[in-house]
Each structure stands twice: as C-alpha cells, then as structure tokens.
Amino acid sequence: MAITASTAVLTRPAEPVAIRDVARTFTAGGSSLPVLRDLNLDVPAGEVVGLLGASGSGKSTLLRQVCGLDTPDAGRITIAGTPVRGVDPRCAVAFQESRLLPWRTLAHNISLGLPRGTERAAGAHRVDELLDLVGLAEFRSHRPGQISGGMAQRVALARALARSPGVLLLDEPFGALDALTRLKMQDLLLDVHAAEPTTVLFVTHDVDEALYLADRVVLLGDDGRGPGNTIVSVTPVPGERPRDRADHRLAGLRVQLLDGLGVDTHHS
C-alpha cells in the first residue's frame, strides 16, 4: 500500500519533545484528583511514541499538555528546546471523534488546519496534496455528514497534517472505528509518517495498535509511590516498520504490556 511521494512544500521538520517533572492535579468544587506526577520523557525528532494506559491514567491529559490545550501544574514541556506556552503552532492534534465542521466541505475542513498566513494558492495546493495522501481526492466537495466514520477520521488526520506539525498528537484517533477500518487506518498512518516523517505521540487503549505503530510504547499507570500516575515502563519495539502483525517478538511484548495494564486495573 504505497503512497505516491508527495511534494510537501509546506512541511516543517520533525521536532523533539522533552517532558520534565510534569505533574497535574484536577480540582473541581473543592475535591482534587491527582492525575500525573513526576513524569519525564524524551522523544527524539521523528520518533513514534505510543502512550498506553488504563482509562483515567492521564494519557490524554499528557497529550493535551504537549500541544498546550492543558497546562501542567509543575514541571515543563519543551519542543525543540523552547517551552510550550498556550496552544503551540508547532503541534497538531487529532481526536477520537473527527470533530469536523459539518457545514464545510472536506477540502474546507482540511484548510482549517493550514498555518495562519498561508498563501491562498499554496494552501489550496497543500489541501489537494493531503486529500490525495489520505485517498479522498474525489470526495473533496462532500460534507462530513455524507461520509463514513473512517473517512471522517482520515479528513481529521489530513487537517492535522495541514498544519505541517513538527509534532503530531493523536488522541485515540482510531478508537471509535470498527476493527477492519482501524487496521486500514493504522497502515495509512504508517504511510503518512513515511511520506511526512514528523514526531508522533499517540494515545491508545489497544496494545496491538501500540506495538504495530510505535518505536517505543510508554505505559502510564500508578507505580504505587504516590497519588496519580506516572510512567511505569518504556518498551522499545523491535524491528522496522511496517511490522508483521504476527511477529512472535511482538507477541511476547504484548503479554508483558497487557500484564502491566492488568496490574493497573487491579490497583485502581
């Protein structure tokens, strides 16, 4: 499933991310919920990192902090050495729901992601390129209500790429899709990453997905040394992408990671 090489005129080089001593506690109406603590992670430019963890383990919170949609209470996050303050233009996010504007065409929705001040012609060219990249060129004038969930998610991915992100953040991007579409989307993401190699952080519940896509799988959870969650383990995934889904080495890691998740569910 090869994608014809795209002439990405507007792409930004991949950026490294550094997360230092990050902590986050949510407070609502007097009660406080510690979510993250003592979190340290270095993601080199161009790496694909999967964030794995049980529900409520703070995966999404961490992801939102990297792009500036949420702010840590303590610690700091830097992209290419400069700290993230507010919504960072070097990042792009895609969510579990496609969150497309229903009144806009797909092409228009993708153009929402273009960096501010993009020249009109260059922007239009980039949108065409991205529509090609996600295989929806002939649906450019459709509206989100007329397409399937998988297609909508591809548009959301294209919209994120339109921003030419140095860091691409994906919050369970395939979580709401059926199993088959999900596998196709995983391959599409690998193709996209091959065509436009940016740094990718993605959140998932799915161990297999993490092992298939990531260079490293980061497991978030409670390590028993305090309230809230932190990194329990970082697992480098062997082999080059695209990986064989039936690779026996992955099978071993899978058991190990599921074990990590299982222990967590017993604790919480």
Binding site: M1, A2, A137, E138, F139, S148, M151, R154, D187
Partner: peptide, 20 residues
C-alpha cells in the same frame, strides 16, 4: 469507502472535478 491506495484513480472520475 474508497481504497486507501490512491495510485489508481477510479475510472471516469477526474480528480478534483467532481461536485458533491
């Protein structure tokens, strides 16, 4: 759902020239 592989455009469809 069109195939993700885009190397072959569907027959009879001019890319970009199709209105919804």
């Amino acid at each position: 759902d069109p195939p993700i592989d885009t190397t072959l455009p569907a027959a009879g469809v001019t890319p970009g020239g199709v209105t919804g």
